[in-house]
Write a protein that binds this DNA or RNA. Sequence first.
DNA 1: TTGAAAGCGATACCAA
DNA 2: TTGGTATCGCTTTCAA
Lengths: 337, 337
Amino acid sequence: MTRKPARRVTLQDVAKHAGVSRATASLIVRNSPKVAAKTREKVLKSIDELGYVYDRVAANLRSQKSSTIGTIITDVGNTFFSQFLLGVHHELEKYGYTVLLGTTFDSLKNQERLISTMLENRVGGILLCPVSTSSTETVDRLKTLDIPVVVGIRELNELTCDFVGLNYQAGAYLAVNHLIQKGHQQIAFIGGISDSTTWTERMEGYRAAHEDAGLSIDYSLILDSAPTREGGMEAIQKLIQQDRLPKAIFCFSDLIAFGVIIGLRKMGITPGKDIDIVGFDNIPEAEISYPPLTTVSSFAQKTGTAAASLLHNRMQHPEEQRQRIIIEPELIKRDAF
Amino acid sequence: MTRKPARRVTLQDVAKHAGVSRATASLIVRNSPKVAAKTREKVLKSIDELGYVYDRVAANLRSQKSSTIGTIITDVGNTFFSQFLLGVHHELEKYGYTVLLGTTFDSLKNQERLISTMLENRVGGILLCPVSTSSTETVDRLKTLDIPVVVGIRELNELTCDFVGLNYQAGAYLAVNHLIQKGHQQIAFIGGISDSTTWTERMEGYRAAHEDAGLSIDYSLILDSAPTREGGMEAIQKLIQQDRLPKAIFCFSDLIAFGVIIGLRKMGITPGKDIDIVGFDNIPEAEISYPPLTTVSSFAQKTGTAAASLLHNRMQHPEEQRQRIIIEPELIKRDAF
DNA sequence: TTGAAAGCGATACCAA
DNA sequence: TTGGTATCGCTTTCAA
C-alpha cells in the first residue's frame, strides 16, 4: 500500500542553489510580499532549474493546517451521488481545497473505516452522507471530534451539526398528490430502507397526501427494499406475485422506479400505459427514460454545492451557530411521448 | 483554504501516558510483532483513553511513503467516468489506498493545476484520464516525474507509460457494421472532438466498416461536437437544418446519442422509428432510455478496475516493462419495445 | 524488547 | 528584509 519515491528536491536545496536561507525561500513559495524583487527572482529561477515541487504535506504538518476535505458518499455509481459530488467539487475547487473521496456502499463498517482514514489524513473538514444504519456511536464519535463536519442528505438524530438535506416529506407529498389528482385512489409506495429518516419522511408525505384527500392508506401496498434498481425490481415482482398491483406507484427514488419499470416489463405489464409511476430525485436518466419519468427533483448538484459551501463557511467560522439547509423539491411532470 | 484545528493527541502523549518510549508506541501502532503483549495492551489502552488518532501524514513524511493515489478524470457528472471511478475505488480500496479526486472538465489548465496539486500532496501514484487537448508539455512533465503514472481512456502520443483503454476502432466497426447489416447505406457519425485519438480511432472503425461493405463515405455526414449531451443536440440540429439527415446515425458516445435523441424530438422526428441510432459506452442510462439504445459497451467500471490494478502493480514493481491493456468492446443490441 | 536522538520538509519566531 | 533555530508528529537507527 505504499511506495518510496526518489529523493525530493527540497526548499533547502533551492535556498542553497539560490544562495539564500531556507526561511527566505519559504517566504517566496508562499508569495509573501516582504521579500526583495531581486531575491525573489533569483529563487524562482532556482526553483525552475531544480524542478522543485512544493511539499504541501510537510507544510501542513508544520503549520497545523489542512487543504483537503474528506467527502464520504454512498456510491459514485449512483447518479444522485455523482451529481452531488459534482456540486461539491465545483464549490470546493473555488477555495482551493482538494477532495479525498470515500464511498461507503451503505455499509456502516466502511463508514467507520473511512472516517478514520479521513482523520488520519488530517483533512480540514468532513462532508458526510451517512449510511442508513448509522448508529449513535457514529454520532458520538463525530461529536468528540474537533473537526468541522457537515452532514448531507440523511440527517443523524441527536447530532447537532450543520446539515444539508431535502424536504423529503414535501417531495413525497407532491408526488403522491400528483397521482391522486390524476384520479388514483390506490397508490403503492415502493422501495427504500424503512428505518432510515429519508424513508420515514417520505412516508409522512405519502400519509399526509392521503389524509388531505380523504383517502385511507392500504399498508399492504407499502414495500421497502434495498435502495437500488435491483431492489425496486424485486419489490415490484413480489407485489405482482401477490396479485396486489395497483394502478399507481410512488417510488422511493428514480433508481427504484427504473427497477420497477424493468420488473413490470418482465411481467408483461406496460409501465406508463397500464400504470402511473412517479419517481424521486430527477437524475439525468429520468429525462430520457421510457416512459418519461415524472419525478420530484431533489437538485442533487445544488445540494452538493450547498453542503460544500456550508462546510467551507464552518471552517472559517467554527463558532457560528449551526445551520440547517433544507432544499425544497419540485415536481417534474413528464408526459408520454 | 486552510484551518487550524485544536492540538492533536500525539504518539508522545500516548507513550507518556502508558509509561513507554515514543519508539515503542510507534511500533505498536504499526502492528509490529516485536513488542511484549503486556506492553502492547497497556499502550492500546492509553490510545483508547486519550482518543489518539494516528497521523498518517506525519508518518508518510518521515518514512517517505504515500498511501494516497491521485485520480484525475474529466467529469464526475458523466456516467462513463463515474462508472470508471467506481471501478477504480473498488480496486484501490483493496490495497488500502485513499483516493484524491480531481476533475478537469476537459480543460488543459485544470489538468495542469490538478497534476501539480497531486504532486504537492505527495500522492504515491497518479491515474490520469487526459483532456482531449493534452499537449506535449503535459507529456514531458509526466515523463520527468519520478512517480508512477497510469494513463486511462485517452492515450497520449509519445508517452511511454502504462495505459488502459478501449479498442475504439473495433467498437466503432461493430456499431457501424451493425447499421450496415440493417441495410443502411448512409450513416452519419456525430459528436466528439475530432482531434482526439478517441475520435480518430472511432473514425478509423467507421471507415473500415464502410470499406469492407464496399460503401463510400459521405464526409458531409461527419460532424464533431463537444462530448456532451448539449454538443450532440446542437450537432444534430445543424444536420437537420442543412437538410442532410440520414436514416442511420453512429454517435461518438451514449451521451451524444441522448443529445441527438432530444434534438431529433425537438425537430419533430421520432428516433427509433424514423431513424436508427447507435451509441457508444453502454452507460446505465442506455438500458432504460427511449428508444432503447443499441450501443457498444466500453465496460467503464472494468476499465477503472484494470487501470487501478495496473497502477498498484506499477507501484510495486517500478522497473517492469510497461503495459498496455486494451479492453475489447461488445455490441449491445436493444430492440424497440 | 525498549529507549535516545536524528531527521523527513516545511513554517514560526525572534534576532540581526 | 534576511537568517538561525526550534518544531510539527512520526519513523529510523543504533545502543542498551
